[in-house]
Design a protein around this nucleic acid. Structure first.
Length: 263
DNA sequence: GTTGAGCGTT
């Protein structure tokens, strides 16, 4: 069997799209997913039995049912009945987008096959939308995958879609979730209250407010009494809030005679 | 050269 195109559609009645096979006549699930994001397999109606039949899928590779793919139309399978759910999710996220641009966050990808590489992850998740970064966590000594990784999308709606369904990656079901970890470059922005250390006793609340308003709207200044050489400054959280003085989620800020953003 | 619920060396 040689390279060919097979006809694929979301529904038996819809116009099919031709997608390429590999040189050995197999078709990669990733190729299908490139045109039908979230696809997890193919099925077709048997000309003999008139029943729907599943296409053999082994580790992300789809195999022709007979000696070749013939001229059948293959229908895309989605996880469970997720197609409808995905559509609803699109509508929901569209509403959110109208309210304002949503910030994306890293997603943890659980259940990865040991063999899955970052390139594999990139290829897979790119079928959902633009990908900013992917990571596969590995043992530092052996280089073996730990079976999980991270992904970050450009658009929040893509993130929502990715979280709303399971993912068939290299033959295993994987899940995308919001991570629990506190560290990470996106975490500091979620914090509004900043610890201000090394304060001197002469620093008044107004003075602190005047100073910190260069970074964003200050909604509260807290100075313990009696004097304890620190304070808390709380900001109104918005897209313009500068994060230059945050240090990896510890909300650390140093005020003395100089400002030290990296202690 | 193993494993299969979880949470990120930089």
């Amino acid at each position: 069997m040689t390279e060919c195109y097979i006809r694929v559609a979301e529904d038996e009645n819809e116009e099919p799209m031709e997608i390429p096979s590999e040189e050995d006549g197999t078709v990669l699930l990733s190729t299908v997913a490139a045109q039908f994001p979230g696809a997890c397999g193919l099925r077709y109606r048997s000309p003999v039995s008139q029943c729907m039949r599943g296409v053999r899928l082994v580790e992300g590779v789809l195999h022709a049912p007979e000696s070749d793919w013939s001229n059948l139309v293959y229908v895309v399978n989605y996880p469970k009945d997720n197609k409808r759910k995905m559509d609803e999710m699109d509508a929901a996220s569209a509403v959110k987008i109208k309210r304002g641009v949503q910030k994306t966050s890293d997603l943890i990808v659980l259940g990865l096959p040991w063999k899955t590489s970052e390139q594999d992850l990139k290829d897979y998740f790119s079928t959902f939308g633009d990908v900013i970064m992917v990571q596969v966590k590995r043992d530092a000594k052996t280089g073996n995958s730990k079976g999980f990784g991270f992904v970050r999308f450009t658009d929040y709606e893509t993130q929502v879609k990715a979280m709303s369904q399971r993912h068939m990656i290299d033959g295993r079901w994987c899940d995308c979730k919001l991570p629990n970890s506190k560290a990470g470059p996106d975490e500091p922005m979620r914090s509004r209250k900043v610890f201000v250390g090394r304060c001197t006793e002469d620093m008044a609340a107004d003075e602190l407010r005047q100073f910190f308003m260069q970074y964003g709207e200050v909604t509260d200044v807290f100075i313990p009494k009696p004097f304890r050489a620190f304070a808390f400054v709380t900001f109104e959280l918005n897209e313009h809030l500068s994060c230059c003085f945050f240090l990896y989620g510890y909300n650390l800020f140093c005020v003395g005679h100089s400002v030290c953003p990296h202690i």
